Simulated scan of single mutants.
Amino acid sequence: MKKFNFLLLFILSILIFSCGSNNGNKKSDFSLNISEKKKEFSQNEILKASISSKENKNFDSVAYFIGTKRLASGITADLSFELNSVLLGNQELIAVVYYDSTKDTLQKSIKIMSAKAPKVYTYEIVNTYPHQTDAYTQGLEFHNDTLYESIGQYGKSKLRKTELETGEVYKEISLEDEYFAEGITILDDRLLLLTWQEGQGFIYDPNTFERQGTFAYNSSKEGWGLCNNMEKIYKSDGSEKIWILDPETLAEKSFIQPTTNTAIKSKFNELEWVDGLIYANTYQFPSVAMINPENGTIEGIINFKGLQDKLGNKDSLDPNNDVLNGIAYNAATGKLYVTGKKWDTLFEVKIMEK
């Protein structure tokens, strides 16, 4: 009798669990269809999709999503949605079909591209300042008119404060040899420093450089660049994603994908918040992308080609480690500065549309 009761209970539990949702173990009775079988869209296009049933099975309602954004819901099987309010990049179109007290979740991968090509910008050198040639620059940031810099490479990673006019280092600490320092940003009297492949970042007091804690990366595997807009923290990891971190817990909550009208871009290294946009240099290229943080649109590209020719130590640089890297914006003065790995010069630049 005990065996029978146990078996009955086991069967009933399976039946109850199965009533909630189609968990993917059986083939759905419904299909998600995108008009013209398209897989790539521009953000100014209308996405049209529908639900069909192979055996004319009835459903109660359908809810459509791109990622977590609800597009529409109701008893109709059809979707017609203008894409100008969704995130760009690689996305999942999801349809949740409710029927017979259960539901099926269907999805298809799509790409959403920017509606316009990015504008092209050039630069004018306004001023030049000395820069320490031992600095394998990873992060560069102004805070209270003080210039902070993080320096990478194993066994050589450092965090320092420098004097803009002279390039003099007036405070510096070294990281342990097992850490490769990456980008930095300062928010709410916390200096955040990424490490490259060590899976964690460090929290410092920006005045004393006393280490106050650590934070994990969660979903991303590497640390590249950081910036903030006083409310959110943005983190690059070398992939096509720029992560948005919770400013309190520093957990990766969501992400954008920097996208043009033709491609989803990656390898963004140093990040800087400049007048509502994320400025991001592309690793090993003399260019900086101007990224809309709301949806990932690359609105502009600053071409810094030729800037390296202005260096005093150009001929002595290792060609594998001489790239543009380091963007600092002083919001109090409206001035923008750039440098590179082991460059002897920090440039104040003015950006102009080409």
Rank of each mutant, 00 (worst) to 15 (best):
L159Y: 07
I173S: 11
E141M: 05
K103A: 13
W196R: 05
K111R: 09
D205G: 02
T162V: 15
G201S: 07
R211N: 12
R211M: 13
T208D: 13
F209D: 12
E141D: 03
G167Y: 02
V169K: 00
K171C: 09
I203N: 15
H143K: 10
F142G: 09
K108C: 06
L159F: 07
K111C: 03
T128A: 04
V169H: 00
Q197M: 08
A115F: 01
L93Y: 05
I186R: 06
V120T: 12
D177W: 06
D134N: 14
E92K: 09
N207S: 13
G152Y: 00
I112M: 06
G152I: 03
K158Q: 15
L147E: 05
D104Q: 01
Y154F: 13
A181V: 00
Q197K: 09
S109P: 03
E178P: 11
E149H: 02
Q197N: 07
A181L: 02
G139P: 10
F209Y: 13
T162M: 15
I151N: 08
L175H: 06
Q153E: 14
F202D: 09
E163R: 08
L106P: 08
Q212W: 10
D189K: 08
E210Q: 00
Y136M: 03
N144E: 09
V120G: 08
F180K: 09
Q153T: 14
T133H: 12
Q197L: 06
Y154G: 13
S157N: 01
K108A: 09
G155W: 13
F142S: 10
E182N: 08
G201A: 06
K156R: 02
L159A: 09
L93W: 05
Y154L: 12
I125E: 08
T166A: 08
K103W: 09
G155N: 14
K119Y: 11
P130H: 04
L175S: 05
Y204A: 14
G155R: 15
T128W: 01
Y98C: 12
Y129I: 04
M113V: 07
Y99W: 03
S101R: 15
S101P: 11
A95C: 04
V120E: 14
L140P: 01
M113K: 08
Q107D: 07
T105L: 07
T162N: 14
L164S: 01
I203Y: 14
T122D: 04
K111Y: 05
V96D: 10
Q107V: 02
A135N: 14
Y204P: 08
T162D: 12
L106E: 13
L147N: 05
T128G: 02
D100T: 10
S114M: 02
K119M: 12
A95G: 02
L194F: 01
Q107F: 12
H143S: 14
Y129W: 04
T146G: 06
A181T: 00
Y99L: 02
P206C: 08
Y123T: 00
T185M: 03
P118N: 06
L191C: 10
S109Y: 07
G201M: 06
Y98M: 11
G139Q: 13
